[in-house]
């Protein structure tokens, strides 16, 4: 029964994130436009874009190899698998046993490498530049993420996301400065990973500082559709990760029934909406920083994560 429930929740979760990912991107864009006083495109616009792109004939650059044709699927598959491991409305999904945070980080790295190789493939200056910058940012983002994982592992006793979510939901932790610091660090990492302001601007092309879009300049048709979907899925994944760790209340526990699931779904949608609103407000309020300030920004995130670890050692040493 538990296995069956796990299977059902896993499939529902997959359907939810796949359908919801472009919608979430659309909602963030819409909210941002409203906050800036524009009317904004309909939140379903990303879905429409993706469906339209799928109908178009893909064009490959002259120098492009099989990498350009395979990388989108690889990156999307890795992101999808990572997203499938992060609980949304219910815990105890079928794959909960392997939902290790290090594995999720590894799958994201796989998607990132596929993206960077796609940037290199056509042999254009923009693509190579974007790839180099993307990998450089990851150099700073990855240690911050790892130290955050250490903080969670100290508190929950495991780096398994399902366990962490369950322990944090029980709420025996109280208010923790270390969790506050870790949350800030993780948010900074999430901003960098999703190419959002202040690290990159998702709304522009052909700025000298662009990173994510530079690697996709030569993608078109269904390949571009898959890349767009991957980016949307990654944003959803990071939102879901932040929600699963720092806002775990309301999530249905393992082995609960449809009633609790729908309650958990309601909670999850509210959390996603809140995070989208916060992102839109943050992006409207702040300017993009110079590329060579980004290591400082992510270095700050790493420092916060280290501080969180130090404080957690203090409090566990005292308890």
């Amino acid at each position: 029964m538990v296995v069956f429930g796990g299977l059902i929740t896993q499939l529902l979760h997959l359907a939810l994130i796949l359908a919801g990912a472009p919608l979430l991107t659309g909602v963030v864009r819409w909210l941002k436009a409203r906050l800036m006083g524009r009317r904004g495109a309909h939140p379903l616009q990303p879905w429409r874009d993706i469906l339209k792109l799928l109908r178009k004939r893909p064009i490959l650059a002259d120098g492009a190899s099989i990498v350009s044709r395979a990388a989108p699927y690889l990156a999307f598959g890795a992101t999808l698998l990572a997203a499938a491991l992060i609980p949304s409305f219910a815990q105890g999904m079928l794959l909960a046993g392997i939902a290790d945070l290090l594995l999720i980080a590894g799958l994201l790295a796989l998607a990132r490498v596929a993206l960077a190789l796609n940037g290199h493939d056509a042999g254009t200056p923009f693509g190579g530049m974007g790839a180099a910058r993307e990998m450089t940012f990851a150099v700073f983002a990855e240690p911050a993420l790892l130290v955050c994982v250490m903080v969670f592992a100290v508190l929950a006793g495991s780096s398994n996301l399902d366990t962490i979510g369950a322990v944090f939901r029980e709420g025996a932790l109280g208010l923790r400065v270390s969790l506050l610091f870790a949350a800030l660090a993780l948010v900074a990492v999430a901003l960098a990973e999703n190419a959002r302001v202040p690290v990159d601007n998702p709304a522009t092309h052909l700025e000298l500082t662009m990173v994510h879009e530079a690697m996709l300049l030569e993608a078109s048709g269904r390949h571009l559709a898959v890349w767009e979907m991957q980016a949307a899925l990654k944003l959803t994944l990071w939102f879901a990760l932040l929600a699963a760790i720092f806002l775990p209340f309301g999530t249905a526990s393992a082995g609960s029934g449809p009633l609790l699931w729908s309650l958990g779904l309601l909670f999850w949608l509210v959390k996603m909406g809140l995070l989208a609103l916060m992102l839109a407000m943050f992006e409207s309020a702040i300017a993009k920083m110079r590329v060579f300030r980004v290591p400082d920004f992510l270095g700050g995130a790493l420092l916060l994560a280290l501080l969180a670890a130090a404080l957690i050692f203090v409090s566990t040493g005292l308890a």
């Binding site: 025996a172 932790l173 109280g174 208010l175 923790r176 400065v177 270390s178 506050l180 610091f181 800030l184 916060l304 501080l307 404080l311 409090s315 005292l318 308890a319």
Partner: peptide, 20 residues
């Protein structure tokens, strides 16, 4: 007073915020 109790937690958060 220990972790999980309100007096400790609030002081902890305020001190941590000052450090931040």
């Amino acid at each position: 007073m220990g972790i999980g109790e309100l007096p400790y937690d609030v002081a902890h958060v305020l001190g941590g915020a000052m450090l931040l």
